[in-house]
């Protein structure tokens, strides 16, 4: 019985990870402007060539079109094949998701919601309150947001000066890891998103085109 309790305890404890420690320099409200900010500054339409890596070594390529407005946090997005067939098209405004077109397996609300959340994490500054600003033990500049849904988002700047975003679950597990690189013409040319889910996936996004969107 004691052994069983011990095993359960070890299992539970190992499932709970802790967030990396941020050594705070000054109160967050005084240094918020020092946070890395790889996010969009204005409403923009972006086209990305996206490599999708799925479990089992399966790879696919699609074209992603995103219109994102950081002021309203409204998103319009579409996924299409290289050949031009639209697989998915949706709009989210004020938290209301409208799936305009979706072919299986993109026709589930879960997929759509996850995709919109990924897009927001990539292009929008996190919502919520900045909890800490400082440095990680490994030396990166880090700003930590506590979002409304018990998740934590760290926005980092590596020693090479490149921004990264990490979203942690309430138990401290990394759910999303985003790396930005190749800043040219006001936009990051390459974005890599690693998603840790039951079925994990990685997106390699290469910018094809970006331009300010009409209001």
């Amino acid at each position: 019985m004691k052994l069983a309790s011990l095993i359960i305890c070890i299992f539970v404890l190992s499932a709970c990870q802790t967030l990396p420690v941020i050594t705070q320099t000054t109160p967050p409200e005084k240094t918020a402007s020092a946070c890395p900010n790889p996010f969009l500054k204005q409403k923009t339409t972006l086209i990305h060539a996206i490599e999708v890596h799925m479990p089992g070594g399966i790879k696919n390529a699609v074209i992603g079109i995103t219109e994102a407005d950081p002021a309203t946090r409204a998103i319009s997005c579409a996924i299409m094949t290289v050949e031009g067939m639209v697989l998915f098209e949706a709009i989210e405004t004020d938290g209301s998701l409208d799936i305009r077109h979706a072919l299986p397996p993109f026709d589930s609300a879960h997929f759509a919601r996850n995709m919109i959340e990924d897009i927001k994490l990539i292009f929008f500054e996190p919502r919520g309150k900045i909890e800490k600003i400082g440095f990680l033990p490994s030396g990166e500049t880090a700003c930590r947001w506590r979002t409304g849904n018990s998740d934590t988002v760290d926005v980092l700047k590596t020693s090479g000066g490149l921004p990264e975003v990490k979203r942690y679950s309430g138990s401290g597990k990394v759910k999303r890891y985003i790396k930005f690189s190749g800043f040219t013409g006001g936009f990051y040319q390459s974005i890599e998103l690693r998603a840790q889910e039951l079925a994990s996936y990685t997106l390699f996004m290469n910018l094809v085109e970006a331009r300010p969107a009409e209001n």
Partner: peptide, 11 residues
């Protein structure tokens, strides 16, 4: 040339 509502000019 791919035209869609979301695109202001064709891809």
């Amino acid at each position: 040339k791919k035209s869609m509502k979301i695109l202001t000019k064709p891809l």
